[in-house]
């Protein structure tokens, strides 16, 4: 029993490493959106309004669970941990009403999806940003 409790405590203490770099939110170059507000991003990533400001529907992409960038993104956006965001999405997902963002393995994969999909929006480690996609929001 003591060993189990120790495992539990270690899980808690070692769960979420900090991320120190910038995060950029990117869209396809053909997307008419020049920039997004924090409110727009919350609406998109919390399933409240799955459309860009011009009304076009949006395909949202998430980094994998366990990603430091993902943890920092949601902490900055809604001041919640990924576990708390997952709990929030569980409410929506299992009602069959709204689909959560699709998970992608890393920043490079998100750039590739955004480059080829005019409706896509994702967030990446700023070190991976290149001219083939458009930055619409930055988290320092």
């Amino acid at each position: 029993m003591n060993k189990l409790l120790l495992t539990l405590v270690l899980c808690v203490l070692t769960s979420y490493p900090a991320y120190a770099g910038d995060i950029v939110v990117i869209v396809n170059q053909s997307n008419s959106t020049a920039e997004l507000s924090q409110r727009d991003l919350i609406d998109l990533y919390m399933g409240k309004n799955l459309a860009f400001p011009d009304g076009d529907s949006a395909d949202t992409y998430d980094l994998d669970m366990g990603s430091e960038v993902r943890e920092h993104f949601y902490r900055s956006l809604v001041n919640k941990s990924v576990a708390q965001v997952n709990a929030y999405w569980a409410r929506l997902l299992f009602t069959g009403r709204v689909k959560p963002p699709k998970e992608v393995t890393d920043s490079r994969a998100i750039i590739e999806l955004v480059r080829t999909n005019p409706s896509a929006i994702g967030y990446i480690d700023s070190n991976y940003l290149d001219a083939t996609v458009k930055e619409v929001y930055r988290i320092h």
């Binding site: 539990l8 808690v12 769960s15 669970m65 366990g66 941990s81 576990a83 708390q84 997952n86 709990a87």
Partner: peptide, 10 residues
């Protein structure tokens, strides 16, 4: 409630 993983809570 303790979120022991990002998709698991005790």
């Amino acid at each position: 409630r303790v979120d022991v993983r990002q998709n698991m809570a005790i």
